[in-house]
């Protein structure tokens, strides 16, 4: 029997207070009517109104969302392929290099990744803009996708796919009808991870964005460098809200999907 002591309760309480209080304070102060962000002067939604009239922020938000949707979708396709290679392809020439290139970007300092991609884009004469940010984001987020998907593929029962092949499926059909539905929760969480990484990225985007395209994190960074501003608090609150709703919904959906799939797998094995 595990013992849950008073010490454990205190660590959890303090730990979660530490994790959540700063964000809670940020959210509360976004409704402060004072321009002075540290003095409470009454409830107001004024900063949300001003934010919605700030064209520069809206433009940047639109660029950021486009980049995130496109890059995370390409990254999911490439990352799933890479996961299949890592788990299934067996030995081939250059395998060590391949897995090195998958795992290295996960811990690589962003300044190095950003600098190297920028120098590449300049070297080949590609104008910096939305396209270069998409290429950069796809590259690092495909590695995250492949790590997420390969951890699901490892525990995947291959006999299900073999059964489909025995029953006359082509390998592609077997993948589409058997493997893909089973690994779908991992693929979806990989996409979500890639999407948030792209939304969130400041350093790599700073290197690869040109004057024609600015993302939201770049805009936020240049604004907060000058100090705390109530408009940024409002923007942060909106972003925290979206993420919270998104993560909770996604985890509920994926939990249900995983449970259903486990039941189906079990039923298939029994039958």
């Amino acid at each position: 029997m595990k013992r849950f002591s008073a010490f454990n309760a205190v660590s959890l309480t303090l730990g979660f207070a530490f994790l959540y209080l700063p964000m809670l304070i940020l959210v509360i102060y976004s409704f402060n009517s004072s321009k002075l962000v540290t003095v409470w002067a009454g409830f107001s939604t004024r900063w949300y109104g001003e934010l919605l009239q700030n064209e520069a922020f809206l433009d940047a938000a639109w660029v950021t969302i486009r980049v995130a949707v496109v890059s995370s979708t390409i990254a999911t396709v490439l990352g799933t392929m890479a996961a299949l290679v890592l788990v299934r392809a067996g030995r081939f020439a250059g395998r060590t290099l391949f897995s090195g290139m998958i795992y290295a970007p996960l811990v690589m300092p962003e300044v190095i990744t950003g600098l190297s991609l920028l120098l590449l884009f300049i070297g080949i004469g590609l104008d910096r803009g939305v396209l270069t940010i998409i290429l950069a984001h796809t590259t690092f987020s495909m590695c995250y996708v492949s790590v997420v998907v390969s951890s699901r593929l490892v525990s995947f029962d291959r006999s299900l796919e073999e059964a489909a092949l025995d029953l006359g499926c082509t390998p592609f059909q077997a993948f589409r009808l058997v493997t893909l539905p089973i690994i779908a929760p991992a693929v979806i969480s990989g996409w979500l991870l890639a999407f948030t990484l792209s939304l969130d990225d400041l350093v790599i985007a700073s290197f690869t964005a040109g004057p024609s395209a600015t993302t939201l994190p770049i805009k936020i960074f240049s604004a907060v460098r000058l100090g705390v501003s109530p408009e940024i608090n409002a923007l942060s609150t909106i972003m925290i809200g979206i993420v919270t709703v998104g993560v909770i919904t996604a985890s509920l959906i994926s939990k249900r999907a995983t449970l259903r799939q486990q039941a189906e797998e079990q039923a298939a094995i029994r039958a």
């Binding site: 994790l19 700063p22 964000m23 940020l26 969130d200 942060s236 925290i240 919270t244 993560v247 985890s251």
Partner: peptide, 20 residues
């Protein structure tokens, strides 16, 4: 999930929260 949730929230915003 409570530990993972902040990780999904923007890094920049989490750092910014401490400035105030």
């Amino acid at each position: 999930m409570l530990v993972i949730l902040p990780f999904w929230t923007s890094f920049l915003i989490r750092v910014y929260a401490w400035m105030g």
